[in-house]
Design a protein around this nucleic acid. Structure first.
Lengths: 253, 253
DNA sequence: CGCGTCGTTGAAGCCGCTCAATAGATGTGG
DNA sequence: CCACATCTATTGAGCGGCTTCAACGACGCG
């Protein structure tokens, strides 16, 4: 409630999926014109939320699922002992809330890490439309399947990689995602803090900082506060897969 | 091929979901009688597979999804540098293969870690039935949602817990799952090797062995080869949540 | 300008890994 | 039934990568 008055069209809550540039990444993908009409009937666009604002909280009843429209959102969960783990960073066009379907309660919290907007879809309406439009049902399953695969990869990264590999994989993954969104794959802004990166990768903030510095010293990346430039992608890739076995085979890096 | 001649009904490939004791855990859950008939038309039951046999392999085209019927199956994936990560142990009544839906290609491999049987469901048929039976579609989404939550918890465990906590969480999780299946929650057999446990939790086999020994020395569990007895569940729970913050607060364990 | 937050860098310690030896279990063939 | 080979698990000793602890630097904002 502290954000200044907006004169731009942020407050147009009704929104057209048909006209949305994220259409091909988002929920409407693969729907025909009438399918999109059905979605547009139920979608609501949020006003901008500020850094730190929650979109939903673990434990909330599942009312809506959400599509991030602009900005970055982080998903996180707390365990019994109070530790919290960031499970992913969500960029425009991506859907969140699907993990709450089983228990009808959100299992994770979604927090904006910079100014963000999103679209809400009442889940019960989605569910009704699914019964009539198999394409939407299929798209939902594809999205959940994709999330499963993304989590598999995070498990592999956290479980089997050392600090250098984790950071390299993280940067390459961001690069690919920015590229998908139509931005530069070699130069981008980290919307998350070092603390968030460390938490996500199972490291400490100091280690993240040290690895960034080392990669920069080696001329592989350039990093200035939040701006990252990938200067030598091949080298970054080889850092990302220079696993223990490789070291064993060559005897060194 | 070394197992003795079976006179029991393992080779009856047609099988009734209606009569299956796993019905309430498995794919048919929530379906009415006619819905189950539809499933029974397409399901095929496997002959027993042996320890080490693959049910499907990462990269295989997605033809079927599978329900484990008996035994234990592990899911695992390889990365570019050859490291492989076990992503989960699958018990009877659980569905595997859903992560392949997005790309129509299996993203992980499923390997029996002891003699196992399973049911196959052609995915295209499942998909067709979903169009007519919203309950099945909902059940599939619930199952995928549940898998997302399970992976979230694994990420938290691998990323934020120390060796003792990981093992305690692992044992408590197995205990709960055996209980769900109608077995004892306090005494059960580990169907997986120490190596598999270590891989799954992001540890080494030696560390797993040491933690088991320590927990036994402390009288919290009893472990004899693969048989585990939980002797002091409360203590095991407190090991599982005795996180770094707890140590900071109390100054010791 | 002073303060708080965030990020960087250094020094020291610890947890889990690596390496190695041994024990126990399982399987095979004579 | 035992000798032998193989595989799995346990235990110890030493090492190393990441964390912890601490100090400092860089912005941003009042």
């Amino acid at each position: 409630m502290t954000h200044p008055a907006q004169t731009i069209d942020f407050h147009k809550f009704k929104v057209s999926c048909k006209a949305c540039s994220l259409q091909e990444l988002c929920l409407p993908r693969g729907l025909d014109s009438s399918g999109m009409d059905r979605l547009e009937e139920i979608v609501k666009r949020s006003r901008p939320v500020q850094r730190g604002d929650l979109i939903f909280r673990a434990g909330d009843k599942l009312i809506n699922i959400y599509a991030v429209r602009s900005g970055t959102v982080k998903l996180s969960m707390l365990d019994e002992s109070g530790a919290d783990q960031i499970l992913g960073f969500i960029f425009p066009g991506e859907i969140i809330g699907l993990d709450g379907i089983d228990k009808q309660v959100h299992q994770v919290s979604a927090t904006a890490i910079e100014v963000a907007t999103y679209c809400s879809f009442p889940f019960s309406s989605i569910n009704n439309i699914c019964k009539q439009i198999p394409d939407l049902q299929m798209q939902l399953m594809r999205l959940m399947s994709r999330q499963l695969t993304a989590e598999n990869e995070l498990i592999l990264t956290i479980g089997k990689k050392n600090a250098d590999e984790k950071i390299a994989i993280f940067l390459l993954s961001l690069s690919a995602r920015f590229h998908t969104l139509g931005f530069s794959a070699s130069e981008f802004k980290l919307s998350m803090s070092r603390q968030d990166i460390a938490n996500y990768l199972g490291l400490t903030i100091e280690t993240v900082s040290r690895v960034f510095s080392r990669l920069q010293r080696d001329g592989i990346i350039k990093i200035d506060r939040k701006m990252v430039t990938i200067q030598d992608r091949d080298a970054l890739v080889s850092v990302s897969i220079s696993c223990q076995t490789a070291k064993k085979l060559t005897g060194h890096d």
